[in-house]
Design a protein around this nucleic acid. Structure first.
Ligand SMILES: [Mn+2]
Ligand SMILES: [Mn+2]
Ligand SMILES: [Zn+2]
Ligand SMILES: [Zn+2]
Lengths: 141, 141
DNA sequence: AGCTAGTTTAGAACAGTTCTAAATATCTTG
DNA sequence: CAAGATATTTAGAACTGTTCTAAACTAGCT
C-alpha cells in the first residue's frame, strides 16, 4: 500500500516543497519522512545522514545538508545554535525554547507553560527582531 | 613608566591567573591588557589575534586560543554561542544577555534594565542549570 | 521519447579550532 | 644566581563540520 503523505501544519510536505519551488525527489521525500515521522526532533546533518543510511536510504551527506537548508528556507525546519561546533535543526517551528544538555550535547524543547521573556528593550534603530532564543544550559548534577 | 596592573572585579588579573595556577607570562599579560583595557568586549580568537599582531604584540594564534580558554576557565571570560561557525568570548562575566546582528555577525550586550526570564520550569531530574542565555537576533530592517 | 532545468553526488576545498612535540620561559631550590 | 623541574609558547600538521564544484542523473513537460 502507498504511504500516506505526511502533514505538517495542515499542508502536506510535498505541497510545501512545491510551493518553495522544490521538486519532491526520492531523497527529499525519504528525508522528510524520517524528519517528520515522530514528533519533534533536534538533529544535526550528520545525525540524520547516519540515520538514513542506517535505514537503507541511499543519500549523500551533501544532499542531507542541501535538504536541511532548503527545508529551513521553506519554513519546515528551524536552525538552532547552541554549540559552536555543530548546527542543529529543529522540526518544531513554532516559537519555543530549549534545554541544552552540555554534557552530552543533546537539545530538547522546554515543555509545559511557555517561558516569558519580559523587559526586552526595543530593537536598536534600523534593526528588527528576527527571533528571541532562550537556551537553558544544563549540567549533570 | 611601568604599566599599572589592570583590575577586574577588584582583583588584579595577574592575581586571578596565579590563583588559577597560571603563570603571568608576557603573552598572557599583554592579551589581558588588550582584553580588559576598554570596557566590555565580544571577540573571537582570530579577532583578538589580529588586534594583537596589529599592535605589535608577538603572540601565536595557538596561544591566543589557549589563553582565551584558560581565562574562561579562570572566570575572567565567558564564551557565548550565537553562530555555528565562530566562537565568541565576552569580557563581561556578570549575568546579561545579547543582541546578535545576524547581518554582520556582531554581538552586543542588551543595555538598560535587565531582561526577565520568567516561568522557566525546574531543571529536569539529575541536572542543574548552568546558565540561561537569551539571544535577541536582529536583522537590518 | 526528447528536451530542459533542477538535483544529486563524490570528492576537493574551506574555516575555525585543536593537537603535537620541540624550543623557550618561568619558578623554585640550594 | 645557577640548575633543574615544570609550565608555556609555537609552527605547522591534523581535525571537524560544512560548503563548493562540476559531472552524472532525474523529474517534469511536451
Ligand atoms: Mn542556508
Ligand atoms: Mn575549554
Ligand atoms: Zn525545539
Ligand atoms: Zn556580553
Amino acid at each position: 500500500m502507498r504511504k500516506k503523505a505526511r502533514e505538517t501544519n495542515g499542508q502536506s510536505v510535498v505541497m510545501r516543497l512545491r510551493q518553495a519551488g522544490l521538486r519532491p525527489t526520492r531523497q527529499r521525500n525519504e528525508l522528510a519522512d524520517l524528519l517528520f515521522r515522530d514528533g519533534n526532533r533536534h538533529l544535526t546533518a550528520e545525525t540524520l545522514h547516519a540515520e538514513a543510511v542506517n535505514r537503507g536510504i541511499r543519500v549523500s551527506l551533501a544532499t542531507v545538508y542541501n535538504t536541511l537548508h532548503q527545508f529551513t528556507h521553506a519554513g519546515l525546519l528551524r536552525q538552532v545554535m547552541v554549540d559552536a561546533t555543530r548546527s542543529y535543526f529543529d522540526t518544531n517551528t513554532v516559537e519555543h525554547h530549549h534545554y541544552y544538555y552540555e554534557d552530552d550535547g543533546m537539545l530538547a524543547d522546554i515543555p509545559g507553560t511557555d517561558i516569558d521573556v519580559g523587559n526586552v528593550p526595543d530593537a536598536p534603530e534600523g534593526t528588527k527582531v528576527s527571533r528571541v532564543d532562550v537556551v537553558v544550559r544544563l549540567k549533570r548534577s
